[in-house]
Amino acid sequence: MSAALGAHAPRLRLRLRNRGLDGVTLLVVPAVLFILALFIYPFLYGLLLSFEPKEGGALANYIAFFSDPFLYDTIGTTLLIAIPATLLNVVLSVPVAMRVRLMRHQKLLTAILVIPITLGTVLIAEGLLTYLGPRGWVNRVLVDFGITGSPIRLVHNYWGVLLSLVISGFPFTFLLTLSYVTGIDPALEQAGRMLGARSRARFWRIILPLLAPGLAVTTALSFVQAFSVFPSAVLLGAPAGPTRVISIAAYQAAFEAYDYSMASAIAMIMAAVQVIIVVALLAARGLLFRGPASSGKG
């Protein structure tokens, strides 16, 4: 009996190994468990918690959210900041990336552009408070060169938050776009030139169709980042009014009202809006060509 088992064991091991399961595969287990415990579980927990409100039925939190303009308006407010910021960043990134890919010393520019990403939104908020403030250099230039009579208000309102999303978001969008643009085989553009297509025609007929799938991903990621704007909306915006974004509502529910159930509901709504927009973008991407951006054999 035990002999039969002994003969079985190595065969089982062999079978598992043939399916790719052996000691090495087990190395992935700690990381998977960690993400399950601290990412997936909290998310599911939050989802369940959102249906267990402090009072009322299972949907009470969601009903409360969508019947109180102070809460549901945050979706519109956030979209009003996130969509223009995303579009601006993506639309500016494409021509700049098209130009920069021809540069020989790209690394200096990309290194400069990584600085705002590295510094993070809190520092950008503090920097812009000084720089864009009524006594800052921007207003100095506007007033001293006679562009405006008196300093204009750029902080503690909508524009401050939008500008902070451009400062932190443009480098991100640009670097991602650049990596997609440089992935397009330059021989394709040369082929277009040899076939009589001028630069504008080459862009619309060759580059843009090949770039579009990557651009959809870039737009999705940029949007998700902009939609989850938090510190700059508090520090640089008007968190009680025009820049009361959805993450502020969630934060206040959790850490000021200590209503974790409501906070989870708002976090779920935030995630749902992001998912809807991302799915829409990626579905549009599915309609586009998705093959490699080079012509096969190299």
């Binding site: 085989d185 021989a187 394709l188 040369q190 082929a191 277009g192 030139r193 040899m194 076939l195 009589g196 297509a197 001028r198 060759i206 169709p209 090949l210 060509f289 093959g291 490699p292 951006a293 080079s294 012509s295 096969g296 054999k297 190299g298």
Partner: peptide, 20 residues
């Protein structure tokens, strides 16, 4: 002249066919 104005045909080493 720019290549687009010369009107020559060219066959590239990796073909450079437009994949889309």
């Amino acid at each position: 002249l720019d290549p687009e104005d010369r009107g020559f045909g060219m066959v590239f080493q990796n073909y450079a066919l437009f994949p889309h």
